[in-house]
C-alpha cells in the first residue's frame, strides 16, 4: 500500500492552517497522520452503497430560534479579554490584503 499521506500533503496542510512546522515535526506528523489514516482505512472495508452520508451524529433536525433581539454584552465586555483594544475596537497586527471577503 502507498503511503497514506505524503510529506508534500503535510506541508500543504500546515500552510493552510497557517502553522510553521520544523523539519522534525514534518517528518513526525507525516508518520503519525499516516498511521491514523491507515487505521481509518479499515472503515473502507464496509459496504456503504445504500447508506446516506451523515451530516450530523445527533438524531436532531430543524432547530430554529425566533428572530427576536436579545441583549448583546456591550463593547466594553466584548473587548475586555482581548490582548489589545482601543476605543471599543479590537486592535490586531496589520492585516495584509482586504480580508472581509466573506
Amino acid at each position: 500500500m502507498a503511503e497514506p499521506i505524503s510529506r508534500a500533503e503535510v506541508e500543504a496542510t500546515a500552510r493552510l492552517a497557517r502553522i510553521l512546522l520544523s523539519e522534525e515535526e514534518i517528518a513526525g506528523f507525516t508518520s503519525q497522520l499516516g498511521s491514523i489514516l491507515a487505521y481509518m482505512e479499515t472503515l473502507n472495508e464496509l459496504d456503504t452503497t445504500d447508506v446516506e452520508p451523515l451530516a450530523h451524529v445527533l438524531p436532531l433536525k430543524n432547530v430554529l430560534r425566533p428572530d427576536e433581539v436579545r441583549p448583546s454584552i456591550g463593547a466594553d465586555l466584548a473587548v475586555r479579554e482581548a490582548p489589545d483594544a482601543t476605543n471599543g475596537f479590537f486592535r490586531v497586527p496589520k492585516v495584509l490584503g482586504e480580508g472581509g471577503g466573506a
Binding site: F89, R91, P93, G99
Partner: peptide
C-alpha cells in the same frame, strides 16, 4: 498604518 482595528 501600523495596526488593524476590528469591529464585529
Amino acid at each position: 498604518p501600523e495596526v488593524t482595528l476590528v469591529d464585529l
